[in-house]
Simulated scan of single mutants.
Amino acid sequence: MIRFVLTRLLLLAVGLLVASALIFFTLRILPGDVAQVIAGTQSTPEQVAAIRLSLGLDRPILVQYGDWLGGLLRGDLGSSLITSSSVADELAEKAQVTVPLAVFSLVIALLFSVPLGILAAVRRRRVSGTVVSFVSQGLAAVPAVWAGLVLIAIFAVWLGWLPPQGFPLDGWEEPGRALQSLVLPSLTIGIIEGAVLLRFIRSAAVEASGEDYVRTAAATGMTRTRALITQGMPNVALSVVSVLGLQVAGLIVGAIIIEQLFSLPGIGRMLVSDVGNRDLTKVQGELLALTAIVLVIGTVVDIVHRLLDPRQRETA
């Protein structure tokens, strides 16, 4: 097991290195000049050249990448080319919105997808199971923006229970208002991602219910539902853990879109703004941070999968 963990950590390090190179060099291919953005439209070529020199943008691209990579190894994501502020500090500030949004969305997705997925599997030949399957399939196809607009219309405009947009200026110093601001965005992401997860759970539960050990447990006097929950859930849990690793990427993409819709000052909204401003240092730091989150969670999923499945340990 130790060797497996060390191998996964090594692959994680290699993945981050490859991701950093792809992000850095891809951003340099994009059209536009950050020096021109800083200087303004009325600037002279000499002024633009002076800004490029002061920012180090005139150096060879490999030298620029080496400097950025050296900073990453020291835990330094660099500074904004436009505001000179620390990228790491701004990411930490914006993460106070994005991380709770992703966590709340994941909790909402699990709260309704796990029980309803099992219900849809147990009652798959009844009306209730068919309805759950049909509704989940429809929700999984709903665009996040449309779902968010519907929730705003119902809970903010019609009922007036929740704020439609924004986040408190004092942040989490006003926890009540901050939580209220995240309810609708979290519901928007959680419902859609939960509908996708529900379908996987239903499929895994249906497959597990046909296994011999579940039928044997039912033959000993257990109900079909109890036999599935007590004997089949370990296999269902393996599928859930695997899918959750993929769902994280969906949560991150959903957060970027939803932060725009609900005017949340999170990482996604900052990323869109920095791309428009051609602030390459901030953009590459933000993209690398998001990529690192996905890769780390993927590594954790692999390790948890190995811990939950004794067959993999025996094979190893």
Rank of each mutant, 00 (worst) to 15 (best):
M1H: 14
R3G: 15
L6K: 06
L10M: 13
L12G: 11
A13P: 05
L17R: 07
V18L: 12
S20I: 07
A21Q: 11
I23F: 02
I23V: 12
T26K: 06
I29C: 08
L30Q: 15
P31G: 09
G40W: 04
G40Q: 04
Q42P: 00
S43F: 01
P45L: 05
E46H: 12
A49E: 15
L53Q: 15
G56Q: 03
R59A: 15
P60K: 14
L62P: 02
L62C: 00
Q64V: 04
Q64S: 04
D67G: 10
G71N: 12
G71F: 13
L77A: 09
L81P: 03
I82R: 15
S86F: 09
V87K: 10
V87M: 06
D89G: 12
Q96L: 08
V97K: 00
V97M: 00
F104T: 10
S105Y: 04
A109V: 01
L110F: 13
L111Y: 09
L111P: 00
G117C: 04
G117M: 03
I118C: 06
A121V: 02
V127H: 05
G129L: 06
Q137Y: 13
L139T: 10
V145N: 08
P164Y: 10
G166L: 00
F167A: 03
G171E: 01
W172K: 03
E174I: 02
P175D: 07
G176D: 07
G176Y: 13
R177Q: 14
A178M: 02
P185T: 08
F200E: 04
A204T: 11
S209W: 01
S209E: 01
G210E: 07
E211P: 01
T216G: 08
T216V: 08
A217Y: 14
T223R: 12
R226M: 11
M233H: 06
N235K: 14
V243H: 07
Q247T: 11
V248F: 15
I252K: 10
V253G: 15
I257N: 09
Q260Y: 03
Q260S: 13
L261E: 05
F262S: 00
F262T: 01
P265F: 00
P265A: 01
R269A: 02
R269D: 00
R269Y: 01
L271W: 04
D274R: 15
V275C: 07
G276N: 12
N277W: 05
D279C: 06
V283T: 05
A289M: 14
L295I: 06
V300K: 03
I303Q: 07
L307M: 13
L307K: 11
P310H: 11
T315Y: 11
